[in-house]
């Protein structure tokens, strides 16, 4: 990256099939603007995301991880996202305890109709990560 080039983070977004992915889709079809920083991965449910995916992504050098699913109570599988919330709380706490920039991890509930919310979350999270700068794991050798 050249010095004067602005840092554009790479953010991995796990989007649940039923709500958040549709929300992201809606943001696109509504032509809402948000930064090109998001790399979406569609999962059937946010609870499909093993916290180890997040660890692996972080150690692999991804600058931020967004985990998005249906609002609590709206899960297509009734309770998947409740488990997600606990798992996310667990991994985030571990990151906090290890002083490892827990701010790079974000959990957000985005429904299929919330295209604008998706765009807002993507924009704001990108801004936040920009402030944090590049993930230091990117260049580490002794992993």
């Amino acid at each position: 990256m050249k010095k004067d080039e602005e840092f554009m983070p790479r953010i991995l977004a796990f989007l649940c099939n039923w709500c958040s992915y549709a929300g992201a889709d809606l943001a696109g079809t509504s032509r809402l603007k948000y930064p090109p920083s998001i790399l979406p991965i569609r999962v059937m449910c946010s609870s499909r995301v093993d916290p180890l995916f997040i660890v692996k992504a972080y150690l692999g050098g991804i600058d931020g991880v967004l985990l998005a699913g249906c609002h609590p109570g709206d899960c297509h599988y009734e309770k998947g996202n409740y488990y997600t919330r606990r798992r996310f709380a667990l991994i985030k706490k571990i990151f906090e305890e290890l002083d490892m920039e827990a701010d790079r991890l974000l959990l957000s509930w985005i429904s299929a109709s919330e295209g604008p919310k998706y765009a807002k979350v993507a924009t704001e999270f990108t801004e936040k990560i920009k402030k944090l700068g590049e993930n230091p794991a990117k260049n580490k050798i002794f992993l």
Partner: peptide
């Protein structure tokens, strides 16, 4: 390509954080 080098066998940090994820609770 990304790091220029990598400790081998790799996975120490992943293992330790992963084990925290699995059993710290």
């Amino acid at each position: 390509k990304k790091r220029g080098g990598l400790k081998v066998p790799p996975g120490t940090v992943y293992f330790q954080i992963g084990r925290l994820d699995h059993i710290a609770i």
